[in-house]
Amino acid sequence: MIRVQYFARYRESLGLDSEQLPWDTRFACLDDLRQVLLARGGAWDVLAERNLMCARNDELCSLAEPLQDGDQVAFFPTVTGG
């Protein structure tokens, strides 16, 4: 199982703050998971944004980050704190 969280503008666009996906051996890295989500079409196009950021188990990472069953990942737009 993979828990996926969406924050800020992505959460609003998708109308979803988190979901659980069954583990799939195609999820070698975070980008593989993103491609599966992008294939849903429509609002999910936000995940194609060039400045998308992501995290694995509460740590910022790149889309090349390897995934494992049980991980928690997050997708979000560029951060704007401070």
Partner: peptide, 10 residues
């Protein structure tokens, strides 16, 4: 903090 901490302003 501006580029790596997960805060978003609306």
């Amino acid at each position: 903090l501006k580029t790596r901490a997960p805060f978003w302003k609306k």
